[in-house]
Amino acid sequence: MGGREVVDLDRAEAMRLVAEAPFGRVVFTRNALPAIRPVNHLVDEDGVIIVRTRLTARLTGAVAGNSPVVVAYEVDDIDPVRRIGWSVTVTGLARTVTDPVRVAHYERLLRPWVGRVMDTVVAIEPEIVAGVRLLARHRR
């Protein structure tokens, strides 16, 4: 098995891959330490990442209040055998969506993937988007 070539993705391509992926991992702060939760998501027409969670979830507690909170969001699709694929990390500001019209809109579009009530919508506005594609390096 040869090495891998790492190719940087531009912002548009990275966000397109995030939008096409079914789930990712949100990274937030819990008790001054990093915490990670897998979630499903959608990317809205403005490029904002939308996730649904529970009012009692740790993520909701981290973004509660009027001030946005910095989070990271990671999405990838890497073949574990061939070791090729892509990975994107988005860093941005997360806020709880409170407008009832927007909440209802996102609730219609984004169905939870777990069997729990998801009564809170969180929006992540991408500030920093970094992505790479892992390609097989062909021997000559």
Score class of each variant (00 low, 15 high):
9 L>P: 01
43 V>L: 14
68 P>Q: 08
36 I>Q: 05
121 V>N: 00
34 P>D: 03
95 R>F: 08
80 P>W: 05
127 E>K: 12
119 D>P: 01
106 Y>D: 00
126 P>N: 10
18 V>N: 02
101 V>K: 11
97 V>W: 06
29 T>F: 06
5 E>A: 11
94 A>W: 09
19 A>G: 13
128 I>V: 15
1 M>N: 02
33 L>F: 11
121 V>E: 00
31 N>C: 04
36 I>P: 03
95 R>D: 09
105 H>W: 11
26 V>W: 01
65 G>C: 12
128 I>Q: 11
55 L>H: 09
92 G>N: 06
81 V>T: 11
74 E>C: 10
68 P>R: 06
70 V>E: 08
19 A>V: 07
136 A>I: 10
94 A>P: 05
86 W>A: 10
124 I>Y: 05
15 M>N: 04
4 R>F: 08
70 V>W: 07
98 T>D: 04
48 V>R: 14
116 R>G: 06
99 D>I: 08
29 T>M: 11
23 F>W: 13
85 G>W: 07
106 Y>S: 00
5 E>K: 13
23 F>T: 09
75 V>C: 06
131 G>M: 10
3 G>N: 12
111 R>F: 01
71 V>W: 09
72 A>T: 07
50 I>V: 14
107 E>H: 10
122 V>D: 04
75 V>W: 03
36 I>M: 14
94 A>F: 11
18 V>Q: 02
92 G>E: 08
18 V>C: 07
41 H>D: 05
74 E>N: 03
37 R>A: 15
131 G>H: 04
9 L>N: 02
49 I>Q: 03
57 A>M: 08
67 S>Y: 09
139 R>L: 15
130 A>E: 12
122 V>L: 12
20 E>P: 01
42 L>C: 04
119 D>C: 10
17 L>T: 07
46 D>P: 01
45 E>S: 14
32 A>F: 10
60 T>P: 02
94 A>H: 05
